[in-house]
Write a protein that binds this DNA or RNA. Structure first.
Lengths: 129, 129
DNA sequence: TCCGAAGGTTACCTAGAGGTACCTGATAGC
DNA sequence: GCTATCAGGTACCTCTAGGTAACCTTCGGA
């Protein structure tokens, strides 16, 4: 890992750890959904607007393995399973709230910029070729 | 926009937009590194502790395309290129700071939990087979 | 004349995220 | 008996993020 001191702000790297946990497309979405309270598998699928059941399961397993989410299975039929944030998971509520708030406030600006840039690229291609 | 109140928080989905921007392994790291001021390509490579030059370029291009990062090239030899946050990019400073602060405070707990869980899995395998 | 520095690009490869489709297994309703 | 529900598991596929290694360009210096 070559910790050259002074440089290495990222070698021990809180940011990398955060990314490792969060950087799958659906982790944050799932955690966010759970901030309101426990949810069942099926509810999470509906809420997340697009996640497949397989991927939701994978995501939950990963979050479980990191101690952020708890799984409560009830021996009923049909089976009932509830997922909730652990205490550790709840410490992520604030950062997640900030990120989604940021997205709500600035999402439009990003999309606008992106489309303008694409249009510019397309235009310059048309003109220069 | 289908805001079924309570349900559809993800249908138009600020969280998904946030993830789209952030969820590459190095985007947050790069943005975080730039919060202290403009940096050159080579400086970013060193600071980020592990990113390859190719991937850094890709990451910067993507951030540029989303309007979060600016590229300033100076016509010198050898060439000098500086990257900095745009105004829009600077609006992400706070959320990123919160996430990295979270990682700094809770990273150890996550790693501890993960290792304990792995040990438990390994143990149960040894015993039950 | 060749080398090195800076900031790339390109070709090629791998791992894994994410998706679809279909299977299980217990029960409840018809 | 047949079917639906719920929470998965499994097989199989694709796509892309990320990595390595090599090459390019421009200049100043030995």
């Amino acid at each position: 890992m070559s910790l050259r001191p002074g440089i290495a702000f990222l070698a021990d790297c809180p940011a990398l750890l955060a990314m490792e946990i969060i950087a799958s497309k659906w982790s944050m979405v799932t955690l966010f959904a759970l901030t309101d309270g426990p949810l069942r598998h099926g509810e999470l699928v509906e809420l997340s607007g697009g996640i497949s059941r397989k991927v939701l399961t994978q995501t939950l397993r990963r979050l479980q393995a990191n101690g952020l989410v708890e799984r409560q299975a009830y021996a009923e039929a049909p089976p009932r399973v509830e997922y909730s944030l652990t205490d550790l998971g709840r410490t992520l509520e604030e950062p997640i709230r900030m990120l989604t708030a940021w997205a709500r406030e600035n999402g439009e600006a990003v999309v606008t910029f992106r489309e303008a840039a694409q249009a510019a690229r397309a235009g310059s291609v048309n003109r220069t070729v």
